[in-house]
Structure formats: C-alpha cells, structure tokens
C-alpha cells in the first residue's frame, strides 16, 4: 500500500488576479513524488515554488490540471477528508516560523495533535518525545518568542513532525538561518527521512541543500525546466507543459 502512496500532479496551472493584473504563477507543471523520496523544488524568487508546494499539499486548488494523492483524485475529496489528510499525513514548515506568541514551546509543537482531537496526556507525551528528539526539552515551558532563530526553526520542525506524517513540506527551511544552524536543521530533516522514511518536499533556492536531495525539480517562470537542460538557454522550448507522465 505504501508504494501506491504517491503524489501525482499533471499539468497544474494557477494564476492570480484577473484582467490586466492577471499573473500566471504556474503554467502547466507535472510532478510525481514517490514515498520515502527527498525532492527539492528549486528556482529563483517568484518562479512559483511556493505556489506549487501549496497545490501539492492541498492547501490551494489548481485552476487546471489534476492532482492525485494516494491514488485518489484531490477534487473528489470532501473538505473534511482534505482537512484530515493535511492534519494526519502532512507536516508543514512554512517560509516564516508562524509560531503562536505567548504560548509555550510545547503548546506550539502539539497544535496539530490538539486540532486532531487527541487527549491532553497523550498530546503532552508525544510533544515531549519530539522535543527530546530535537534537544529542546529544557525549552518546553518557554514562550516561543523567547527562542533564537535556530531554536524556533527546530520548534517548527517539531510541529511538522509531531503527528508522524508521511510527507513533510518545507518551504525554505534554512532561509532564515545562518549556514551553521541551517546545516543542523538540514541534518535533522534528512535524518527523519532516513530513520522514519518520511517523504521530504523541500522548496529552496540553495543549490547545496538541493544537491543533498534524491531529486531536483527546477522551476522557472511557472514551468518545470528539465534537469539536464537547466543550464542551457534554450531550455524553454523543452519544458514539459502538461505532457503525459
């Protein structure tokens, strides 16, 4: 069953605004992600990486194209099923930390479990376990605002991890961090992939981080650039606009 658990996107298109201010952020992108894989989505700023990640994570709906998750058409899923999927199977690391201020580190980490309706004791146990894994146990009771940038990012990863997801979507997980701290966070993510077989979808413009992934998807102006031709100027002509997989 696990082998079927893939994300299969075909010809995704997404545009923002309408009329003269209309902007086509994605112009037909096809992507397949297999279980246990680590995939980097690479591209310049504004190329549509975050937009693509949001569509793959069912946070947004494409204007055109199909998306299948675990063999099921995303369009056919009920709102409830989509919420359930995001809550149980996905973990998120967004471009910003999005930690709730004035709430303890532990409470921030267990938010997905709270939303899932898990009981208080079990929630706490799982949260502490994750904080231990990330070496943040001594900060469990601290307010999230009192942490350093690197600690905050570890809390964010803890929050993405606490529900034992199949896939973690990470949008620029090291973008806010210095190189050394960034390397620590990267190590944590790849260790999760290795030990718990969690699929990683990492959005980044950092070539080094991208190189650590099994596979790289290059995006330019809303289109996928074939990897081998990525450095060629004539790559535009060879884009896989809505082509069959």
């Amino acid at each position: 069953m696990d082998s079927e658990w893939v994300i299969d996107a075909q010809g995704l298109e997404k545009s923002y605004g309408s009329g003269a201010s209309r902007f086509d952020a994605l112009k037909g992108v096809s992507v397949q992600i297999a279980p246990g894989e680590t995939v980097a989505i690479v591209g310049k700023s504004g190329s549509g990486k975050s937009t693509l990640m949001h569509l793959l994570a069912l946070l947004d709906k494409p204007d055109r194209g199909t998306l299948q998750v675990a063999g099921k058409d995303a369009k056919a899923l009920s709102k409830r099923a989509v919420n359930e999927l995001r809550n149980k199977e996905f973990g998120f690391v967004f471009q910003q930390f999005f930690l709730t201020p004035n709430v303890s580190v532990l409470d921030n980490v267990i938010l997905p479990l709270k939303i899932a309706g898990m009981g208080g004791r079990e929630r706490r146990r799982r949260g502490m376990q994750v904080l231990e894994q990330l070496e943040l146990v001594d900060k469990a009771g601290n307010k999230a605002t009192t942490l350093s940038g690197g600690q905050k990012q570890r809390v964010v990863i803890g929050r993405a991890l606490v529900n034992a997801p199949r896939v973690i979507f990470a949008d620029e997980p090291t973008g806010n961090l210095d190189t050394a701290t960034g390397a620590v966070v990267e190590d944590i993510l790849f260790e999760l992939n290795r030990s718990q077989d969690i699929t990683l979808v990492i959005v980044t413009h950092d070539e080094e981080l991208a190189a650590r992934c099994d596979r790289q998807i290059y995006i330019r102006d809303g289109l996928v650039v074939p990897q081998t031709a990525a450095t060629h100027t004539g790559a535009h002509a060879m884009t896989t606009a809505g082509g069959p997989a």
């Binding site: 709102k79 919420n83 359930e84 999927l85 995001r86 149980k88 938010l111 997905p112 939303i115």
Partner: peptide, 16 residues
Amino acid sequence: TREIGLMKAMGMSSGK
C-alpha cells in the same frame, strides 16, 4: 490572521 491560516492549514475545519 496568520495563526488562523496556520490552524486551517493544519486541518482545522472552518466550523471549529
């Protein structure tokens, strides 16, 4: 706004 967005992204229903 961002907190609400986050909770919804993590699967909290509109009703909740």
